[in-house]
Design a binder for these strands. Structure first.
Lengths: 212, 212
DNA sequence: ACCTGAACACCGTTCAAGT
DNA sequence: ACCTGAACACCGTTCAAGT
């Protein structure tokens, strides 16, 4: 293809292409060169739209978080439900885009949407009656919980092929009996269901919001 | 230098060299080539010790987590203190090695030490009177909390130079008033103190362990 | 067993040049 | 303004070969 002006490709097109690669081939495969190739461009052409790979990743994070805070902005549902709506929206966004937790933990997290998310959670806890500082601490704890759980889930998903244990007559006593006894919960295989996540988040909320 | 057998370098030496690069130049800089160069070796020589870069990273994770579970294994302190000891040990290890949260979220997390950590937390919650399933859920929540908070802290640390806001006469009303009002807590700048972290973790524990 | 050197298929980014 | 092509200093990994 010959050089020259072309019908413009938008920043959003580039972010979309990057997400496609992220989901299909993982975070490490999201290279400037691969994204450019997916769009039929030369790597250098991308630097017309984004000044660096980091700037592209920041744009990806903003798109990932778009609308999450708004899930709990409507003041109609009670504060607890609003927290669940925000937490679930964040969790679902991360879960819907394989590899996105690596993206989130790869650099700064100070975009506008990231702050919107923090603000919405603090507001919900303030509506629950918490003072400003406690509401901020509770909101931080919820963000840490959702992101931490997503990180643990991604780590579980990255575990290679389960090697079928050869049948042995004598079983070694396990060093992790309690962990293994809880395997059916699916916590460390990323298979916990939505009800279980809701229950755990309710426990965290209960800890921060004193019942009177 | 000429090829040939040399006084052996150990796997631990390689892991140590890798940590030095991680802390000084960040996760992205931990390359097989850079680690080899730091040891005066050729990249290919490292493949004698580790079959892949991933195997080296897994060894780094195991070293990072070494001893963390043991911080709360002694049955003498009460269960709540044991949880704090484990959580603090994990947090301190991550904080002491800049870039290590990227390491932890870069791949599988199924090593022996990782399981030791999970087991120790579940055991402490079981001592608190929780049933096996609830203890597992509470232990998972604590792990998620510490790792999620470390991820948020690292994201805050990665935020580039704070551009001093030019003095303006008329201030735009902020879209994040509650978040900004809580800036003094240092939550989103990775500067929360140990007492604040302990308080927040106590809230989480309270949510899971019903007071009677 | 442990190591080198060459090679392959990749990276992010810069620069001069084209239209 | 948008794009190409060449270039630079890097990657992880494999392979044949040395001692």
């Amino acid at each position: 293809m010959k050089p020259g002006p072309r019908r413009s490709i938008s920043q959003a097109d580039i972010v979309d292409a990057a997400f496609e690669i992220l989901e299909e081939k993982g975070f490490a495969a999201v290279s400037v060169r691969a994204v450019a190739a997916a769009l039929g461009l030369t790597p250098t052409a991308l630097y017309t739209y984004f000044p660096s790979k980091g700037a592209l990743q920041a744009a990806m994070i903003e798109q990932l978080l778009a609308g999450v805070a708004e899930a709990g902005t409507d003041p109609e549902p009670a504060w607890r439900e609003r927290i669940h709506l925000i937490a679930t929206a964040l969790r679902d966004r991360i879960a819907a885009h394989a590899g996105s937790i690596a993206l989130l933990t790869s650099g700064p997290l100070d975009g506008e949407r990231s702050r919107d998310l923090a603000e919405a959670l603090i507001a919900a806890f303030a509506d629950a009656g918490l003072g400003g500082d406690d509401a901020a601490r509770a909101g931080y704890a919820v963000r840490a919980q959702v992101i931490g759980a997503a990180a643990l889930d991604a780590a579980a998903a990255a575990v290679p092929e389960e090697t079928p244990t050869p049948q042995t007559l004598w079983k070694e006593p396990s060093r992790h009996p309690r962990l293994e006894a809880s395997a059916h919960l699916g916590l460390d295989s990323g298979e916990a269901d939505a009800a279980a996540r809701r229950w755990s988040l309710d426990r965290l909320i209960d800890g921060f919001v004193p019942t009177r």
